[in-house]
């Protein structure tokens, strides 16, 4: 990965911007001598931001930001809040090194992560983390707000798992809420998404999710990503249409069928894509899957085309 420039303290001597007084992290990416460069990077406990100077080929000129937490997870009551600004014409990727663990809740205390990002004209910002894994009883709240212009390009991967499901801890957290908002110039809502899973009154999360352990969302927005959107839409359509078929009619269907026949096995990964925005400038894919590995494969395959922009293919090392 090359030499690492670690900036986990106030690097430039400035206080946090007045707009974000409680920010635990501030990053600014700007054009310096024609290349994307980190001109400001501040992070304080429990957040750490690492900026490796070389990820992939140098020709891409993209900046990679690794967001880490001390101890590899977020404890109950922690609040991480990060502000990122990607200047006009710049390219930046923000990722993690492993899944984000959300530890057991202490009382009713929540663990929170907030990201507020501005993406400039003709800029590209890719938020491509590993999944969030909430331990049993955990409470997690995440909010990501993106301000974009008509020519900005944005990739968001937002995903979470049922917990440490290999150890039998399946959909056992108390609550998970993830909010993703994208606003176009002058605060026009372009994409307003909020997913909430909480142990509930009418049915448990496990009942709702059945055998599926992973929920993922991929957003691709902007003119530079049009071909990747089209390709993903075609491939997902082809993959899913062979899995969907009307139930074979064997007499009436009024009778209960407690045991699905082997041929009635459900797809291990379900995905669907939808365009959004006035001219269909954006696309969102929703994925649910039985295994984390299958989602890593999906992301690796479908986001590989980002390599020319980012200098490395997302999730290639995972």
């Amino acid at each position: 990965m090359g030499e690492i420039m670690e900036l986990d303290a106030v690097a430039d001597g400035e206080p946090a911007t007045p707009a974000a007084p409680t920010a635990t992290g501030v990053v600014r990416v700007e054009k310096v001598r024609g290349r994307s460069a980190v001109t400001r990077c501040f992070a304080k406990y429990p957040l750490k931001i690492i900026v490796p100077s070389k990820v992939g080929s140098a020709s891409s000129g993209a900046v990679w930001l690794y967001s880490l937490t001390y101890g590899g997870g977020i404890v109950s009551g922690d609040r991480i809040s990060c502000t990122v600004s990607v200047g006009d014409g710049c390219t930046a990727a923000m990722t993690t090194q492993a899944s984000t663990k959300v530890y057991k809740a202490v009382g009713l205390k929540c663990s929170e992560q907030v990201l507020e990002a501005t993406v400039g004209k003709d800029a590209l910002f890719a938020v491509i983390p590993d999944p969030v894994t909430c331990f049993s009883t955990a409470r997690y709240y995440q909010k990501q707000v993106f301000h974009v212009s008509g020519s900005s390009n944005l990739v968001i991967v937002d995903w979470f798992t049922s917990g440490r499901y290999e150890n039998g801890e399946i959909w056992d957290f108390s609550s998970y809420k993830s909010v993703n908002h994208i606003f176009l110039e002058e605060d026009q809502p372009l994409f307003i998404d909020s997913v909430l899973l909480e142990q509930g009154s009418n049915c448990s999360i496990a009942e709702r999710m059945q055998e599926y352990n992973v929920v993922a969302m991929v957003v691709l927005l902007g003119p530079k990503l049009k071909h990747i959107q089209d390709q993903m839409q075609d491939e997902v359509k082809n993959m899913m249409s062979v899995q969907l078929r009307p139930p074979t009619s064997g007499g009436g269907r009024y009778a209960a069928r407690p045991q699905p026949l082997p041929s009635q096995k459900r797809p291990p990964l379900i995905a669907s894509c939808s365009p959004f925005g006035h001219m269909g400038t954006g696309m969102v894919a929703r994925i649910v899957a039985v295994s984390t590995e299958s989602v890593y494969n999906f992301l690796r395959d479908h986001l590989a085309a980002l390599e020319p922009f980012l200098g490395a293919a997302p999730y290639s090392a995972s």
């Binding site: 909430l196 999710m209 359509k237 669907s272 894509c273």
Partner: peptide, 21 residues
């Protein structure tokens, strides 16, 4: 406060256009 609470159904509903019949 509006949130969706059924991610499995949401992904499934998006598949509606993929069905042949």
């Amino acid at each position: 406060e509006a949130s969706q609470t059924a991610p499995l159904l949401d992904a499934l509903q998006g598949c509606h256009a993929y069905m042949f019949s």
